[in-house]
Design a protein around this nucleic acid. Structure first.
Lengths: 240, 240
DNA sequence: CGAATCTTTGAATCCTCTCAAGTCTTGTGG
DNA sequence: CCACAAGACTTGAGAGGATTCAAAGATTCG
């Protein structure tokens, strides 16, 4: 589905999305906008589809609008690890653009369905050359995102299993809160396992505890309601 | 010690260092170089001194020439974690410059003594404004550094204690190899503990094993010789 | 040389993993 | 719309690794 078909130009959603989340395009004049927006496609991707594959030559970057995307990295020894989770507003595949289409660092996999905007690398590159502050802003945003998510990953990889799972849930909850929702889109137990480096059976046990304690209540397929305060207390080792 | 005093201009060491490691200044003409280099100071810092402190307003960035610097982050609950190790050629404090002097993300602490080049943020900023490709290059370099070190940190945080310690040692060994040395500047057991989130007693036990097996031999204060092949085999779970 | 700090080592406990056997979901095809 | 197969999740029990607490032994630096 082409942007033009969607009346992207001036589409409040789009402007809001790109400008707000990347704070990048504010300085471009409208003509540049038009060029930019017309070659962006808006796509719906079903569960388990691939945005891109690790090491493959890169041609696009993506802005996530809805849903959760996991970035999986396969190491030399064949083990797979989720190194980041992307949600609404996050950008996927920028590393490849920065590196001139040399290849993606990870594979990007849709969890339970997602809406994304696909931006051709060529466009990105052109825009970067025409407007030098564009790439500076992108880089700053990207740096912050990378830095923040790096910290998150460390938190998912340390502490007791209980703490780790609680932190993953809180991370999910935080994103859902921003969208004004009281539900989270559940990661599968195996995904949480790949994210935390914990055996999936152990995750299952902890999740069962959380449900017993009423911290989590299933509210639909792949959906759960959560108790923010309770999870927070867990992570900070306080009484509820 | 001012740059001018050290005959920095044209100093092969300096050109080599900045140009080679950051691939950033190559495009600047010599006049720009002169402005730049004169306000850079070269400093020797003793063990345990601070390059900067977390959250303090930032005014400088640093290029590490010799020695090891640890970046420590204190979390809200008071716990401290080493989130990165910097060695020769790495850049410290760039995040603060990108964020307009808003404050450093971590505290940077010298381990056993270090030589660094201190670059005022103002200079950096000025240069960035005068030369738009400057900051792009810096960002690319920085992105790669951040990305690589993020991956390293994950490796330090997962797997058995034995694996983690071996990976830390290998990481150190790799840096020492680049300098053409067969020794590593040892981290203290507590530093390794803060880096791997493992109890320091457990680290001690593993290190004792390594010494018993001849993988490590003490060669001076804070110095050790290492067996590359043996450590590698450990991490990859192969026989030696 | 001596105080402070860092490291080693032991033993008991606790946590997490592994293996194994079920149960529950989800989505597909009749 | 239901039934079934495949995959996801749960739960138990035992083994092993890591932490903790405690006390003694090295190092380093002034």
């Amino acid at each position: 589905m082409k942007c033009a078909d969607m009346e992207w130009l001036g589409h409040p959603d789009c402007l809001d999305c790109i400008v707000r989340y990347n704070a990048v395009l504010a300085e471009l004049d409208l003509a540049s906008y038009e060029t930019l927006l017309r070659s962006i496609t808006k796509e719906h991707l079903p569960a388990k589809s691939l945005l891109y594959v690790q090491n493959q030559p890169s041609s696009d970057l993506f802005v996530i609008r809805e849903g959760v995307i996991k970035l999986e990295e396969t190491k030399a020894d064949g083990s797979v690890r989720i190194v980041r989770l992307l949600q609404s507003g996050d950008v996927a595949g920028l590393e490849a653009c920065i590196d001139n289409g040399q290849g993606y660092d990870q594979s990007a996999i849709v969890l339970h369905g997602a809406n994304v905007c696909k931006i051709p690398y060529r466009l990105f590159d052109k825009l970067a050359k025409e407007n030098s502050s564009f790439i500076n802003n992108i880089m700053k945003t990207w740096y912050k995102q990378l830095n923040a998510s790096g910290r998150v990953i460390i938190e998912f990889s340390t502490g007791s299993v209980r703490d780790r799972v609680a932190r993953v849930l809180l991370y999910q909850a935080e994103a859902s809160r921003k969208r004004g929702s009281a539900e989270i889109e559940m990661l599968s137990i195996k995904d949480i396992s790949a994210l935390t480096s914990v055996a999936y059976e152990s995750i299952s046990r902890v999740m069962a505890d959380f449900k017993r304690d009423g911290l989590l209540v299933k509210s639909g397929p792949y959906r759960m309601k959560y108790k923010w305060a309770g999870l927070n207390a867990l992570v900070n080792h306080q009484a509820v």
